[in-house]
Design a binder for these strands. Structure first.
Lengths: 218, 218, 218, 218
DNA sequence: GATGAATGAGCTTTCATTCAT
DNA sequence: TATGAATGAAAGCTCATTCAT
């Protein structure tokens, strides 16, 4: 064991570091293979091979393929989840477009979007994890929309639950579309979303900054 | 096996008939198993067993599990596809709500919705088939929306392609939701859809039947 | 392929028959391999190979190696068990020698003797099965010896339980020796056994036929 | 690791000492594991772990699992071997009972008895080692019995070889019974053994101390 | 045609052994 | 020397597919 207490020694922990690297290499390898060939069609051996590791090493880091999958998912749950919608002042369409673009750009880096539908169907436990996260996210969106509605910014006669569901659905689909590499005109999508949520005159006021929230009882 | 050549035997082509029955039994069996356990986890033996035929018989009717899947999909592509949107006169929300309900009721009977995401990911050829159908469907919707836009019924400043995509996406998601057994308030969904497509005053006119299409250049 | 519907055809049931043959071939193959290399060192693949059958076929007939073992054991439990001792009139040494020889000859054909010690140690369930059979056998021997003792034929001051255990132990060891191919002088063994059981004057009377059992209260 | 070169440190060869300790720890660990789970089911990793050393260290001390086994066996061969029978004057039954009890008590502490049958079957070389020891032991017993026979103490008409074999067999079985934790009435066993060896009147004389060995030609 | 036993490639997983640290 | 992560051969078992009946 090298002396780790010398002044100026490079403060790395070679073993743990290498371990961690291998673990990550395996996860990366698995991810790419899952995306290429699907979860079922990917074998532990292949995962190990692409990570430049022996088959047995796979089982030092993960009890099995499923466990690796769970790690992989948990790592990236936030990326998978549709973004958090929070309305600030300003042009809502531009605002949203910007956020959509940023979110899906990040998403694309972790190509999991492509993977999820398959996984969710076959694995009840995983589905539960993701569903929980989704429900949590939807609650937040719902609360936000409720607040907006109370402020009189939204269509008054539409059920907020339905609206939330529609938004999330579109965001998820957008995510899939994105992961398929199709290009997306975020400006246009933002326009549709806004039109779905807000009556035209509200949008106009928001854009002009003349929106008077004081009129709204809270 | 009883003697089938007795006088008085049913005079129609019993062989072909029985063949067809077996083929269908196999498809039905496969469908239910695919839905229950997923495509990968269903074995040829099981499919045969549930269809009350021998394993080998499976291979007389289908060259392989995948081929059966393709048959199954093709049979039911229309059910899987989001419905065809055609706007007639009258209250558009009621109209749409009715059609949605009918469509998803039909869909639910062929529970394939649940199956598709898994399949599409793994099987490029299948994905291509489905994508073709989807594109075809989208084209029709697109044309219809273009006509509506030209008539001045729709938001003038929204890209029709984006809109079409949003509609289809929502319809697909609705289909999934449906197949998960969650109940759906079609009335509300119809409202959201309509609001996404049409400006409020147009909706009002449609409902009142005072819409004057003649103003629209064609 | 021979026509099996000819008059005079041998009334066999080809399928079941072949199945049975294969099952037996597998059992035989397993037995010989277990004896050659031990249970743990024998693989399902090898068993199948020696039975001229594919690996998968093994699993059609047995859920796994252990199950095959159980079948094998149950088939041959009687052969494994030490013989049943019943004393009739006449020269007890000759009588016993004859029975020993016959028994161990039979035993040798099913070479399981060699196999048992290993198996019993590792497999609690199997050990239980064999132990049951052993206990049953010992009870019978015990009863027999008790009867002999009541008749005054045996050493009066020796515990019958201990004696039974010694006899059975020697028989089992003899079985092992036998299975190892060492030759055995049954005459001499019979002499030892008899001397262990009966006082010398009783043996003498038995040989002379002058034994008077009427003196014995029952 | 603490500095081991401090003044006042124990001046003996600490390295060799520690080595020896490790070796022994490994042997002890292996022994207990072999007894608990059997030789085949014990892994090198487990042995190392229970001995509080790294897996690799195992291979510094033993070329392989089997070699460790051999060491272990050789260490304890005497305990495993049935005891040495030497007849002195006095009550032979009491004498024998005492020795049996002592011997099997010692045996029980090194629980190897349980292990042997499994090992002997699989491992020809080990079997040979043990067999050698056994043969050697039997020779000694044989010589002793021959002496006794020449002195006229034993049944004159029984083959000494057979007798030796029977004695050894019973001793081995007793050992197994012992290792199974069943209780044993050594008094009774001693009685059976003596009766197997000596005619009743000799036993009587031995007990009474009236045995006149001088009558015997040597 | 129909049957289902048979096949064997291929997957998951274990573990004796090696070797860089 | 000691370590324990890494290795990869080999075991158990499954299942799509074939083929003799």
């Amino acid at each position: 064991m090298p002396n780790e207490n010398l002044v100026g020694d490079f403060p790395t922990f070679p073993k743990q570091q290498r371990s961690k690297l291998k673990r990550e290499a395996l996860i990366e390898s698995a991810k790419s293979l899952f995306i290429e060939k699907g979860y079922e069609h990917t074998t532990a051996k292949e995962i190990a091979a692409r990570a430049h590791v022996a088959t047995g090493t796979f089982y030092r880091y993960f009890s099995d393929k499923r466990q690796l999958l769970m790690s992989l998912i948990e790592n990236q749950l936030e990326d998978i989840m549709p973004l958090d919608l929070e309305w600030k002042s300003g042009d809502p369409e531009k605002l949203l477009a910007g956020r959509l673009e940023m979110h899906y750009h990040k998403m694309n880096e972790s190509n999991l979007g492509k993977l999820m539908p398959e996984l969710l169907i076959r694995d009840a436990e995983l589905a539960a994890v993701v569903k929980d996260a989704k429900v949590h996210m939807q609650k937040k969106v719902l609360q936000h929309l409720e607040k907006l509605q109370r402020k009189g910014l939204m269509w008054p006669d539409i059920d907020i639950g339905t609206l939330t569901w529609c938004l999330q659905s579109l965001l998820e689909k957008l995510q899939v579309r994105n992961s398929e590499g199709l290009d997306v005109d975020y400006q246009q999508f933002a326009k549709v979303f806004c039109r779905t949520l807000f009556p035209p005159e509200i949008i106009k006021q928001m854009k002009e900054g003349t929106l008077n929230e004081r009129n709204v009882t809270r």
